[in-house]
């Protein structure tokens, strides 16, 4: 995400996604291309899928990126990879918190309470704890290279757990969340089983937009961290 045109394109893309996700009407029997069918049990609340799921997806992208940069740091001992790894982990944690908050708001209106210790909620909570510990570990070590090595190893181990907590555990356990084992549609992915083609289109457009937004944020975070490091080394 370096050119201004690409950034403006991304902003327009996500603006269109926001408008479509919020304004397209939900009707029992869709006739026009822009009408979404009502999903039983979700109704208008189904619109959260266009924001909440891409946030969770971006979390996975960021944590996997943190793991990859951790591996590259251990291979090269280049501190720039440590900087990228911690930037990715920070953004991943931010998106994870956003996914948790939006999911919790949705749970209040669909399940009646903000927090229910559903397998999906529990797994994302554990994930937040794991990455909270990552930042605690980093702040506990003062020596730059030792901190980078320890956190790279930790980022790799934590990254391995991410697919399990996001994709596997909530699907093999009975829960309230759509797509879990007790769900009437089966334990498969929610989006393929329950979404009409036009909903899928908006959903994947949102997924792409959020992923690109992550890369823009990542670029800004890495560049600002480099400047901060340069300033510190000059002092």
């Amino acid at each position: 995400m370096k050119s201004t045109t690409a950034k403006i394109g991304l902003v327009l893309w996500l603006t269109l996604v926001i408008c479509a996700a919020i304004l397209f009407p939900m009707v029992p029997a869709p006739e026009k291309w822009y009408e979404f069918p009502i999903i039983p049990g979700l109704e208008e609340k189904a619109r959260i899928i266009f924001f909440h799921v891409p946030m969770a997806w971006t979390t996975v992208v960021a944590f996997v990126a943190a793991m990859i940069y951790g591996i590259r740091f251990l291979m090269t001992k280049n501190l720039d990879y440590d900087l990228r790894s911690v930037s990715a982990a920070g953004l991943g944690t931010m998106f994870c918190i956003l996914a948790t908050v939006t999911g919790s708001l949705w749970a209040k209106f669909n399940w009646g309470s903000f927090w229910n210790w559903d397998p999906r909620e529990t797994s994302i909570f554990v994930l937040l704890l794991i990455y909270g510990a990552y930042f605690a570990l980093r702040s506990a070590v003062d020596v730059e290279e030792k901190r980078a090595t320890l956190s790279a190893v930790y980022a790799i181990i934590a990254g391995v757990t991410v697919p399990f907590f996001i994709f596997v555990m909530p699907r093999i356990m009975t829960g309230l969340h759509p797509g879990s084992k007790g769900d009437p549609q089966g334990a498969g992915p929610v989006v393929q089983f329950k979404m009409a083609p036009n909903m899928l289109l908006v959903f994947f457009a949102s997924l792409l937009g959020f992923t690109l937004l992550y890369f823009w944020l990542f670029n800004l975070k890495v560049r600002s961290s480099r400047l901060e490091l340069q300033q510190q080394s000059q002092e």
């Binding site: 001992k77 501190l79 720039d80 400047l227 340069q230």
Partner: peptide
């Protein structure tokens, strides 16, 4: 703007062992 002010260009890795 800050990147333009500070030399060397910050696209380079910060340090290498």
């Amino acid at each position: 703007k800050l990147e333009e002010m500070i030399q060397p260009k910050p696209d380079q890795p910060v340090a290498e062992k």
